[in-house]
Amino acid sequence: MPSSTPAIAKLVSQLPDTDADLDATQKAQPDKLGRPSKFTGPDPNKAEALFAEALAGGTTSLAELIRLIRPPGHPDFKSFKAEYFLHGLAVHAARPGREPARALLVNTLAAQLANPQLPNPVRAFLARELQFVGDATAAAALGRLLADDTLCDPAAAALVAIRDGAAAQFLAAWPSAHGRRRLVIIQSLAALRDPTGLPTLRQALADPHPDVRHTAAWGLAQLASPAAIPDLLKAADAADPFERIQSTHACMLLAERLAGAGNTSAATRIYTHLRNTRTHPKEHYLRDAAQKAMDRLGASATS
């Protein structure tokens, strides 16, 4: 395990051991320590006091805590406690009314994402903690991980959860993205429903990879873009069975979003197309769904 300030290591060590380690200790069986195990957790009040003490040590203490973390299976792994401690501390700092503590933690986590001495699984863990407590101040640090094949997914999830400032990070990463990272970026832009992602999503609708195309179609539907209607209707008439199902769903979603935004004529155009083209008996449920939606639109238009 890396060296650390005694204070942080001591705080971490005060957390209870796993059930298996407690059992082995009571039975004086040191050869059975460290077995994979469940655990029961500390007294909440004692844990809160430990977290508060660690936070009082500022950035230095938090960075030291992060340096103690090693994932199970890593040659330096000794205990789950440091990882558990950091997550508990994040929950503690995120309580309403503790904004300075939270800002301190978020800034430290974001800075440590760039620490090359940390194994990637630890950096992924830090990104997941930012998914929980992060804010716009961490967006740029997370955005830099979008270029890393192994960290792109947790960084993207954190950015989507944070939302503020996230779209710009995905758009900046898009031109140089390859393989799975393209899919992750398109999915994230779609989930964010940020209008600045519209041109990129339209571009991705012609992507050679079907997952990217389906995800882009879903994103265009989320954004309620009338300009996407021709592309989505064309995709929905695909012969490939699952692509047809997915793209038809994107059309239904787009029509709902358009109707919700007051553009009933564009919504009706989509519903009419689906009603008229779903003639196979096994697709009549779609015809019925489109007709019912049009009936609702008509009812709302006349009411």
Partner: peptide
């Protein structure tokens, strides 16, 4: 209401391509 962290557990991002 008034709890971002809790909402992030109620509305979780999914790993692509699943949504």
């Amino acid at each position: 209401l008034g709890d971002d962290e809790a909402n992030r557990l109620a509305y979780q991002p999914m790993r692509a391509p699943w949504h």
